[in-house]
Amino acid sequence: MGIRAAGTGGPARRTRRAGAALLGLVVTLAVAACGGGDDGGGQAEGGDGGLTPVVVGALPTANTAALNLGVEQGFFEDEGLDVTVEYAQGGATMVTTLVSGDFDVIGAGYVPAISAMSQGLPLKFVVGGDLGADTDEAEWQTVLVKGDSPIQTPADLAGKRIAVNAVKGVLEVALRAALDELGVDSSSIELVEIPFPDMPANLESGNVDAAYAPEPFITSILDAGGRQVLAPPPTIAPGFINGAWETTDQFIAEQPEAVDAFVAGMTRAIEYAQENPDEVRRIIPTYTQIPQDVADRIRLPVFDAELDPAAIEELAQLAVRYEVIETAPAGEDMVYTGD
């Protein structure tokens, strides 16, 4: 499989015009869970010349560091936005909240948004977020077990209870695809939905046999004597796409300046995170419960603002394979280009 984002050396620069209003539609989703904009995007206009408020939904994980750095560094303010970050458990929750009108933009795994789009909900990816690493040692989302667990290899995961933050999300698709790639029957595993911050305790207590966790929880589990047994993203393909930033078509149509501004600010934030890994490590404890000494040692996400429609469509086909969705939308239909 060749699912990776094109141009992993840095975010693409494409002018995008989009906006900031939401669907007034409350939907219940049976889905779950993360090219760039022109750096000189036009500023969004707020009331009386002030900043336009934008509520952004995100996960309390290491890959949200770029967003928080962008807020702290004033990149969004420079574009005319007053960004408020709110946290959720998984991508499906955020998609539902986005469509219901409580979030303006969300940062989530691709799969929840693809699932929503496959059901006809008018969403678009507006800017990329992060990729998997090229090697098992560098991967920042892995499957871990307790130090005394009998599970030694990926083959031993067959038939086991494995924690994910949300079923029917990008982690489930990546995990099943990686196991099948290695010849392990992915249909034999039992997935248990547990928020990321609760995974270390549930693993230690034996409530689950393994946990598919991102940083900074990988380092916490390893510090407690745990072991890594599988790194799904690089097992599937180097640079496996993971997360992006999404909004609704109505949001795009009603306030194009605001989304254009968000894309510009987010692209700057991702570039900053790419160039300043020490700043990424510094900010993680400010929005998680991870101590600074742990944040100083974690494996950092691979930040990338580019969107690759072909890779997104490949991931959608995997979601069909694992019965997360029935049909895969065309990649180009899922990505907003500003045309």
Rank of each mutant, 00 (worst) to 15 (best):
A155N: 10
L182E: 06
T135L: 11
L157E: 03
L171H: 07
N165E: 11
A166K: 06
E139Q: 14
Q141H: 12
G109F: 03
T93R: 10
E137H: 07
D180M: 08
R161A: 11
G147S: 09
T93Q: 14
S115L: 04
L157G: 01
A108C: 15
V95Y: 00
V173N: 02
I106S: 03
K146W: 11
A155E: 14
D102Y: 14
V105I: 15
V99K: 07
G129V: 13
E172D: 09
V143G: 00
D104I: 05
A138D: 15
G91I: 04
T93V: 15
G101I: 03
P122I: 05
V126D: 01
G159F: 14
G128L: 10
L98D: 02
A177I: 06
T97S: 12
S149H: 11
M117H: 07
M117G: 04
W140L: 04
P112K: 05
I106R: 01
Q141A: 14
L157C: 11
T142S: 14
G128Y: 13
E181V: 06
T135W: 11
P112Y: 05
L171M: 12
Q152R: 12
G101M: 04
K168N: 07
L157F: 09
V111S: 05
V143A: 03
M94R: 07
A88S: 14
D136S: 11
K160Y: 14
A108W: 03
L98H: 02
A177N: 01
Q152D: 13
D104H: 09
A113V: 15
A113M: 11
L171F: 06
A116R: 01
E172L: 04
K124A: 13
A178Q: 00
G90T: 01
A155M: 13
D134R: 10
V184F: 08
V173Q: 01
I162Y: 08
G91P: 00
G107Y: 15
A177M: 07
A92S: 07
G120Q: 03
Q152M: 10
V184R: 01
T93L: 13
K160I: 06
G91H: 01
T142H: 09
A155C: 10
S115P: 03
A163T: 07
G159R: 12
V111Y: 08
V170C: 05
V126T: 08
I151W: 00
L175Q: 03
A88E: 12
S149W: 13
K124G: 09
G132D: 00
V99C: 06
A163G: 05
K168W: 05
Y110F: 15
A177T: 14
A174G: 06
L175R: 00
A155Q: 15
M94W: 01
V127H: 08
G169R: 02
D180R: 04
V164R: 00
